[in-house]
Amino acid sequence: MIEFASAALLVIGAFFYFAGTVGLLRFPDIYTRLHALAKADNLGLGCVLAGLALRAETLATALKLLLIWPLALAASAAVAYAIAHRAETLGIAPWRGEEEP
């Protein structure tokens, strides 16, 4: 049961990483790409870490794995803001969209 839950979480995590990378490649400008990277990858990381924590041999190891998540979240949120802020300071206008067929 734990084995299955862990495998499911790892697969879901891989899915979010995949979607985040596809967003990074497909989205049109720096701001929209930041959305994809920050949100999807963090969810992917959370799922992967939860999946690994279920497999950990001791409670302390599991907690150590889970501790990575808030640290990575804080770093990636701050970096996303820093990049967006810099882009706006440089005068990079956000993509306005074009009519989709």
């Binding site: 979607a19 989205f27 049109p28 949100k39 969810l43 969209g97 989709e100």
Partner: peptide, 24 residues
């Protein structure tokens, strides 16, 4: 909400037409 946010942007990235209407 981070689950909602991640799902939303993942679906947008994988959809054929992402349906982005960005604005500041």
């Amino acid at each position: 909400n981070s689950l909602r946010g991640g799902l939303q942007v993942a679906l947008m990235a994988l959809r054929r037409w992402p349906g982005l209407r960005p604005a500041i």
